[in-house]
Nucleic acid binder design. Sequence first.
DNA 1: CGCGGAGCTAAGCGCTTGCTCACCCTCGGG
DNA 2: CCCGAGGGTGAGCAAGCGCTTAGCTCCGCG
Lengths: 209, 209
Amino acid sequence: MSAADEMVGGEDRPWGEVTPEAARRLLVAAVEAFAERGYHATTTRDIAGRAGMSPAALYIHYKTKEELLHRISRIGHDKALEILETAADARGTAAERLAGAVRSFVRWHAGHHMTARVVQYELDALGEEHRTEIVGLRRRSDAAVRRILNDGVAAGEFDVPDVPGTTLAVLSLCIDVARWFNAQGRRTPDEVGELYADLVLRMVGAQGG
Amino acid sequence: MSAADEMVGGEDRPWGEVTPEAARRLLVAAVEAFAERGYHATTTRDIAGRAGMSPAALYIHYKTKEELLHRISRIGHDKALEILETAADARGTAAERLAGAVRSFVRWHAGHHMTARVVQYELDALGEEHRTEIVGLRRRSDAAVRRILNDGVAAGEFDVPDVPGTTLAVLSLCIDVARWFNAQGRRTPDEVGELYADLVLRMVGAQGG
DNA sequence: CGCGGAGCTAAGCGCTTGCTCACCCTCGGG
DNA sequence: CCCGAGGGTGAGCAAGCGCTTAGCTCCGCG
């Protein structure tokens, strides 16, 4: 539907921007391991093993285990933020923009739920500097959604008594998809995105459904 | 502000069911540590230290570190489930029961956000047997909410095209409060509960507002 | 007073962790 | 044919982990 949706889809390889090839394999292995067991329960030996390498190989491409997490978190947040800001800047009514934002944001969290899980739930494992950098990106996500809500209220499309609180709730609802979504489950990322877009429109009092 | 302070507020003592006193102190210390750093990043020395004891003291009252997590998780889930089922069994319209359920469930997650964080986000750290036990409790939570939604649809109070999906979304929204809620923040648990009850009523198409 | 058990500690065991280091292959250019 | 540099390995180090054990103190009871 929207340009943002297309980009998240699957034309280019996942993590294509990470080079060289060995570094990419290690990073993909780390995403899997962090998502399954959590950052602290994952060992560098586990990551290297999944990538088919010896433990020492990891340190040729990354200085520390934490740098791996930071790279994943940074790239993931960039992608998620790009999705939200593209939807917020799109043309159309506030309701259309909000529905588009939720639809593509949720689709990404469901379709890339391993990455999303690491990105959204391993923030505390980052070092001080890296964490504040990432928190900055999250504030921009919040601002993008709040802007759509404010526009909708100003245009008389929405009925939202508490804009900051509702912004928080909308983002929280979308983000938590990464926690429960199961690729083997019944729902596809598209279906969840559609359901959630409808639910959020109801939350803001738009005549959608 | 300690985890113990956070619990006092209610009618009965925090973790009052845990005896003897030393075991209770260790458990409260573990809740704090797990909530701040996560289960895997927390050491038994840290827990014992917070409780003002030597590392070995922990093993007089608990067989393993995992048993501590299980005790916390079990008690917390029991409490959360009791809240939901009480609300689901209450008298009144479906809308009143749903609002009550969300209000008290959210209030608990905000007011006991340390405990809730451990309970909701450290499930994977439990052993096989303990995890399946807890998963059973969560299924009952799901059933309680779904029951209210079904009642509301049958009574013509709600307009919900996808009851299982909406049940999931409602619970997800409430649970995620434990992740972002900050005791130093502007909102009180009561305020968040009120806001969320309103948002959820809108999600199910009840004429609340 | 002597006794036994409960609660706690100092010390430390065996193991795993993140990470390092000396060395080895592979391969394009002179 | 040798070279040097970059990607990779096997072995292993220091530190920290969960957990154990021997022994201490305290206290109610006969």
